[in-house]
């Protein structure tokens, strides 16, 4: 440690007694009044909130449920009959051989014949 270091360290040490007097005032004023409410984030706090109501999350069960859900999705998406990722067939119009009167008129209740 050179001379400048010694002088600086000594000077800052001298001022410590004043720091301590002020620090005592800070501590006594903190002790004098109630502390404010703490800021809690919902993401970190929700398991605690559930614990208060005896709804503790059972993480292994939640994990098992998530795995089952994932397996279900995989089967649904990638099973042989799944068409979710196939391109829609555009332009394949199916012309049905249909009598338009079937759409427009009800059949006779007794005979079943359409007008």
């Amino acid at each position: 440690m050179n001379r400048l270091d010694e002088i600086l360290a000594h000077q800052l040490k001298i001022e410590k007694s004043a720091d301590e007097a002020i620090a005592m005032r800070v501590l006594s004023s903190l002790a004098a009044k109630p502390l404010p409410a703490q800021r809690r984030s919902f993401l970190n706090g929700w398991p605690d909130a559930l614990l208060n109501f005896d709804f503790a999350p059972a993480w292994p069960r939640i994990g098992a449920l998530a795995c089952i859900g994932l397996v279900g999705c995989m089967i649904g998406f990638f099973s042989p009959g799944a068409q979710i990722f196939e391109k829609p067939r555009i332009g394949t119009v199916q012309i049905m051989d249909i009598d338009p009167s079937m759409l427009a008129f009800d059949p006779e209740p007794l005979t079943g014949i359409r007008p």
Partner: peptide
């Protein structure tokens, strides 16, 4: 940390 906090802020 009270005295150190005061010291830093004071300087």
């Amino acid at each position: 940390y009270a005295a150190r906090a005061v010291g830093l802020a004071r300087r």
